[in-house]
Design a protein around this nucleic acid. Structure first.
Lengths: 196, 196
DNA sequence: CCGCATCCTCATGGATACTG
DNA sequence: CAGTATCCATGAGGATGCGG
């Protein structure tokens, strides 16, 4: 059901949130439109994906069913497994800021904090939001309000940090990471620091 | 690296333990021999699989590298995700007793017990062993010594039990599960029962 | 036997153009 | 925007061969 080519990548796209056809397409570099249509119908037939026709605008969005959403564990496991490859960074790697929504959630430990903290990642010309509160760690496609800290870095560096393959000190020394030490600590160090 | 057809299934086979070419082949119903050879070489090139030439007999075994073995989390996530399908049991489902080594480990909670207990599953004409001790829950292709309990059931029933989709009472009432109530409790109920 | 390599056929995927 | 239709290239499946 999810072993066909592109299928699990479609799921990955929808794990960020419901999307329209063209948005799924743009997240999947190289997929043929006919194949995407075929995969979406297949995933719909097997109950992984749900096709919704929006009422007000003429829009069709695809979303994961509750069962399909349970593939998050699988995809996150793959994200964690592949971090050594991401850290390597082959020359032809593609990148979209939105992908961090999934990756960071998979890589960062699920911290909680009584006082909610908000961090914005400025990367590849886009902003994504990270929120840590009582409910745990949540990553969102768009930041909703003021940030307590802002991190500005290349994707590779951020992933390297999250994976623990790179230390904050190394990244700062290399000039590849901007943002105050306080900001960095807020995200990447121990819970006591976050909650202080 | 593991998205090609059959690749992750090869990994699944090797997660049980190192295997020879022909054994991997027989675990993968429908794969062409040339494809298997190609995939194994590909997995070897990318550092997921290791090819070992045994010294004493003329044998070649394939094994997962440490990094490749970390795909266990991914495969186990898929096992858990797909239990509703396994419980459904399509008519053309194939089954090999050895597959339970992976499935049970993914499905059963990782219990520990001071006094080691050994359970044998008699299924599809073969025996597999389950051991619970201080180190946790371990499943092995072959039982090594005397069992404290023996479960004799159809694969579907065992999976249903492990997944929690079926209760012990239902299975016994349906006559599809043999073995003493004590034996069943030993495996499927709370830790306190196991350790009593 | 085991561990593949070769050959052939056909299903599947990829690229592009096109349409309601 | 949300796909469909078409055509071509690639990869999968199946049978077979062959050396160790």
């Amino acid at each position: 059901m999810v072993g066909d080519r592109w299928s699990l990548l479609v799921v990955r796209e929808l794990l960020v949130g419901p999307k329209r056809y063209s948005d799924v397409l743009s997240g999947l570099d190289g997929v043929a439109t006919n194949l995407l249509a075929q995969r979406l119908r297949s995933l719909e037939d097997t109950g992984v994906v749900e096709r919704r026709v929006a009422t007000n605008p003429n829009g069709i969005v695809y979303a994961l069913t509750p069962w399909g959403a349970q593939l998050r564990e699988t995809v996150e496991a793959l994200v964690r497994w592949s971090t050594p490859l991401m850290a390597l960074g082959q020359g032809d790697d593609a990148f979209q800021a939105e992908w961090l929504v999934l990756a960071l959630r998979a890589l960062l430990p699920d911290r909680t904090s009584k006082r909610p903290i908000r961090v914005h990642f400025a990367v590849a010309g886009a902003l994504i939001g990270l929120r840590i509160d009582q409910a745990g760690t949540r990553v969102e496609p768009r930041p909703t309000d003021q940030a307590d800290a802002v991190l500005d870095a290349s994707p590779t560096v951020i992933l390297g940090l999250a994976a623990g393959a790179l230390t904050v000190e190394q990244a700062v020394a290399a000039g590849s990471l901007r943002g105050s030490q306080r900001s960095l600590d807020t995200v990447f160090t121990s819970h006591s620091v976050i909650d202080d």
